[in-house]
Amino acid sequence: MRFEHLIQINDPANPLIEPLSRAQLWAGLVRRAEFPAEFAIGLEGARIGERVPHGNDGGWRLSRVLDFGPFKVSDMVVAEPEQRMRIEAFASAAFGRSLLTMTIEAPDEEQLFLRCVYETEPAAGQPEPDAMLVGLREQAYQAADLDMVSRIRQMLAH
């Protein structure tokens, strides 16, 4: 399954929305990577590895184990500073591999967007999900991403 959506971060036509800079949005994405419990409902804890340099642009990787109580998810965050963050959840017996790529896009100085692309595979031996489940999953992904942006805005306001 592949699902993609775009979140408008800055809207020059709406003065009620406080604009964010690319650096502020990036700082929020880094916070999400390093403190996932602040952003994920149902996450009971997380074991976060050390940042390891990755690439020639100041990028880094971070391994994590997310504890959701009855199950754990191992993943890897790969960051390209102020450009893109990828989170790959490794396949397990219960879940297939998944990949979330969040890319910051700025078509001009006043506009800022966050493109979120989800790619998921069913667990080994499991069928592809039906259309209803796919639709529910897409709604949940979009709601979680909108909530993340809202939380980033709240954190910056304090």
Rank of each mutant, 00 (worst) to 15 (best):
G49I: 12
E44S: 03
G42H: 00
R47K: 12
V30K: 14
G55E: 09
R61S: 05
V77R: 02
G49L: 07
A37V: 15
V73K: 09
G69Q: 04
E44Q: 15
G69I: 10
F39N: 03
A33S: 09
V78P: 00
G58F: 05
R51N: 04
A37Y: 00
L66H: 01
I48C: 01
N56Y: 04
H54K: 10
G49S: 07
F68W: 08
F35H: 12
L43S: 03
R32I: 08
P36W: 02
E50I: 00
S74C: 09
S74V: 09
D67R: 01
R32W: 02
G42Q: 02
E50T: 06
P36D: 12
F39I: 01
S74D: 10
I48D: 02
V52A: 08
A33Q: 11
D75H: 10
E44R: 07
H54W: 14
V65Q: 14
A37H: 08
P36Q: 08
G45P: 06
F35K: 15
D75Q: 11
V78M: 09
R51I: 14
R61E: 12
V78L: 04
L62M: 10
G69R: 07
V73P: 04
A33R: 02
I48E: 01
K72N: 12
G28P: 11
R31P: 06
G69S: 08
A33P: 06
L29T: 03
G55V: 15
L62P: 05
N56G: 11
P70K: 05
I48P: 02
G69W: 08
E50C: 08
R32E: 14
V78T: 15
G58A: 07
E44Y: 00
L62A: 10
I48W: 13
F68N: 07
G42N: 08
R31M: 02
V52R: 15
K72Q: 15
V77L: 06
D67E: 08
R64S: 09
G59R: 09
F71D: 03
K72Y: 02
D57S: 07
V65T: 11
E50V: 02
S74A: 12
F39L: 03
F71S: 06
E38A: 14
A33H: 03
F35L: 15
G69F: 09
A40P: 01
V30Y: 12
R61F: 00
E50K: 04
E44D: 13
